[in-house]
């Protein structure tokens, strides 16, 4: 009951279509941000950090703002960051840490194209182009099926 009340009091938006993740390495700290496509932060999401060998080196939860800051003491070339927001919503990314970079920072290889800013504005997770494209595909697929069934009928 207590667990259930906690869930009600601090709801995650875990019924969204998907969760997204952005991670970067700055001055010895790995900063992870979990968010849903509408821009809502993924609060209390589980974050795990793995080495390239698959060794778990850190485990934690995002805060109310969707952030988790991890002091990365271990010397590794890259880390895999996995975020799990519950009910089957998971995102992962790889952060490449290059200590030889001039600014002492990093090269980032991220699955997200747009990193969230401080004034992060929510983006619609889909555009009209994709919607009409999908509708076109649906009628195309069923059109081909219709052709196939018509051919079968004609043969019979």
């Amino acid at each position: 009951m207590r667990r259930f009340l906690l869930l009600v009091a601090f709801p995650l938006v875990i019924f969204a279509h998907r969760v997204d993740l952005y991670a970067e390495f700055n001055n010895g700290t790995l900063e992870v941000f979990g968010y849903f496509p509408d821009g809502t932060p993924a609060k209390g999401a589980d974050v795990k950090v793995f080495t390239p060998d698959g060794e778990l080196i850190y485990e934690g939860k995002t805060d109310q703002g969707g952030w988790l800051k991890i002091p990365l003491t271990r010397k590794v070339e890259r880390v895999k960051v996995v975020l799990y927001a519950g009910l089957g919503h998971k995102a992962q990314t790889t952060v490449v840490i290059n200590p030889s970079a001039a600014n002492g920072a990093n090269q980032i290889k991220n699955t997200q194209s747009e990193p969230p800013r401080e004034n992060f504005q929510s983006q619609p997770p889909f555009g009209w182009k994709e919607i009409f494209c999908g509708l076109g595909w649906i009628f195309g697929i069923f059109g081909i099926l219709n052709f196939f069934y018509g051919f079968k009928r004609g043969k019979g």
């Binding site: 969760v19 919503h89 992962q92």
Partner: peptide, 8 residues
Amino acid sequence: MHISEGVL
């Protein structure tokens, strides 16, 4: 209710 890749 879409389960993401890598969960199951």
